[in-house]
Amino acid sequence: MDSFAGFVSLSLVKATPLVFAALAGTICERAGILNIALEGALTVGAFAAVAVSFATGSPVLGLFAAVLAGIALCALLGIAATRFGVDQIVAGTGLNLLAAGGTAFGLVVVFGQPGASPEVHALGAGGEKALIVAAFVAAFVLQAVLDRTPWGLRVRACGENPRAVRSAGVDPRRVRVTATVVAGALAGIGGAFLSLGELDIYSDGMTAGRGFIALAAVIFGRWTPLGAAGAALAFGALSALQFVLQRAGVPSELMQALPYLAALAALTGIVGRARAPAADGVPLDERPAHIGRMAKGSVENRGD
């Protein structure tokens, strides 16, 4: 990575899965679902893409499979949280274990070997570029949808005050589940980019915490699609920079830790005030904190 152009292109490659996952996280949180399972969604997406490309020889079908796998995992969270009274956070943690265990098991069942898959037909340089462009297009589209469409308004309302949504005759459960479906599709594509775009194999643990970096990007992007995509791009550049700075003697762990440290800093609100959606992570039958709980001593400004 000696040339600037090389650095930019590596940054984009590193940022793309983060952008998809961060957009997925943003849409969920705006609808009131704190999606801890993004890591799992990237994992199943990456795995499904490779498994289907292996079985059919078509990486495009692999990409579709990744979308479906991501949707399945995230919708499970949405449905469990809205219909079965399952706690979002705990369920998300469970789904991450489910995804990690299921894909490690799937490697043995599908490919007959643990650890990593054999090489499969990948999307190629053209496909990789298309997905990079798609990630940023998706950010603009999602921003417009959230800001300017009736559905976007419902999503935002669900994240702020689901009771008002219900009063307006819209079922907030439906809105939240739809948001997780959209998120699952985005995260699935992000996973496919990792396994079939950047590489041509699936290996255990290849998502390497990107789902959690995406959650950090959501906070840093102040819960807007464009902001989250921008933060994801910055984190991508940071991971590209790692290769350069490591040669200059900067510990790679420090570079890797920066997104997470940035997220902690963002939680303090020192880096600039930003407020999470009031009903982010709050079950539908509970009242968001700002309603009826304005007394002092209450937690007024949640970092997320």
């Binding site: 704190l34 801890i36 956070i89 915490g209 959690f212 959650l215 950090a216 906070i219 762990e253 420090l254 890797q256 830790a257 997470y260 440290l261 997220a263 902690l264 939680l267 303090t268 609100g269 999470a276 992570g281 937690v299 007024e300 400004n301 949640r302 970092g303 997320d304």
Partner: peptide
């Protein structure tokens, strides 16, 4: 982070997990 700044402990602990491993 939670008590002083109202920061969500879910996000904080998730981030701290990874920082611990790296550190």
């Amino acid at each position: 982070l939670r008590a002083r700044f109202g920061g969500n402990e879910v996000i904080a602990t998730l981030m701290l997990n990874i920082i611990a491993a790296l550190l």
